[in-house]
Design a protein around this nucleic acid. Structure first.
Length: 337
DNA sequence: AGTAAGCGCCGCCATG
DNA sequence: CTCATGGCGGCGCTTA
């Protein structure tokens, strides 16, 4: 019985726009998230059918070949969509970074965006939103490999390549290919609440909110790329035993026997990270570890990581992990069984 | 809350 | 000529 469902909210139309060469995961991620959200909302008697997923094509063709060769059929060219679009998702693909799709598509996109509740991109789909002018002056992210290109092509954007999802009022961008999942989970959380989103995440066996950076290992702030460089790994050992102290970049340079200027330059080239940022990440990493594995007071943890006062640890922590230290502990502390 | 001080970062230029 | 290094000064973020 319809009456038994708690939510009176209308069904939302999710339009996923694909272009040829799209990574399968770019579209599979969002599709599965919304589909599982439907399923769970139904089971929970919250909503009989929360989402309708519409697969659309950015070209006149009704089919598109994905990067791995799987052919998507029965696509609806965007111009033929008649339903009101609640959420528009532009999936990334190699052509998304080029001048394609054509001007007609961009015109459609600009018009459509005026009417959507939310417009989003996965991976390099951000280039499409940027070209359409939708990201002007907004915070944005994309696949980290293309973040620089995005920033230089569209200087007004504030590109942050370590984010998985960047959200503004109505516009969302997400990072690497798999982050379409993170993006969609966030949208589901907004629509159906945290509990449902968490259940979807559990079903997919992914964290509800990924912490850390793109390219980083799961939950790790510092990626192998950043740590496996000569400079970083060399300095890291020394840093680990000096984290409680106030460390300057100059001291780090000393450890590497280089001038501060040159150290900073070479370090940045190798790791894509400035020495200061690296140090900060290392401190937060250590704090995360202690929050997970110990019962130490926040203040003690802060001291041991060199993150300063409780206030400043909180601030720094929020910047990197997007939740407070105590919130992080609540979610991730390993229960003492 | 608004300001001042400190520090890291980066562009620019000089040197080897 | 180029490439790696290093010094200087200004800008901006963080903290007190």
């Amino acid at each position: 019985m319809i009456q038994s469902f708690r939510s009176k909210a209308k069904q939302k139309n999710i339009v996923v726009v694909v272009t040829p060469g799209v990574a399968l995961l770019d579209i599979a991620g969002p599709c599965d998230v919304f589909n599982f959200a439907n399923q769970i909302a139904r089971e929970e008697k919250l909503h009989p059918e929360a989402y309708l997923i519409i697969m659309a094509s950015a070209t006149r063709a009704h089919r598109a070949t994905t990067g791995p060769g799987v052919v998507l059929a029965n696509l609806i060219p965007v111009w033929e969509i008649t339903a009101a679009i609640d959420t528009l998702i532009i999936a990334g693909s190699p052509v998304a970074r080029l001048e394609k799709p054509d001007e007609a598509f961009y015109q459609w996109l600009r018009e459509a965006h005026k009417k959507t509740q939310r417009t989003a991109s996965v991976c390099v789909g951000a280039f499409v939103l940027a070209k359409a002018g939708i990201l002007k002056n907004q915070k944005a992210t994309t696949h980290w490999e293309y973040a620089k290109q995005l920033q230089s092509s569209f200087p007004s954007l504030r590109v942050d390549d370590h984010l998985f999802v960047a959200s503004n009022k109505r516009v969302y961008t997400s990072g690497g290919i798999s982050s379409g999942i993170d993006l969609s989970l966030k949208l589901v959380e907004e629509d159906l609440g945290r509990e449902i989103a968490a259940k979807v995440a559990r079903k997919l066996v992914v964290p509800l909110r990924r912490t850390g950076t793109q390219g980083g290992q799961f939950g790790a702030l510092l990626s192998a790329v950043e740590l496996n460089t000569k400079l970083a790994s060399g300095v890291k050992d020394w840093l680990d035993s000096n984290l409680t102290k106030h460390v300057t970049v100059e001291q780090m340079a000393d450890q590497a026997n280089m001038s501060p200027r040159n150290f900073a330059r070479v370090f940045a080239k190798e790791t894509r990270l400035t020495p200061g940022k690296f140090l900060e990440k290392l401190r937060v990493e250590k704090a995360k570890q202690m929050l997970e594995e110990t019962d130490l007071r926040l203040k003690q943890i802060s001291a041991r990581c060199g993150l300063g006062s409780l206030i400043s640890m909180r601030r720094t922590f929020l910047r990197h992990v997007s939740i407070s230290p105590s919130g992080y502990r609540n979610t991730f502390q390993k229960s003492a069984v």
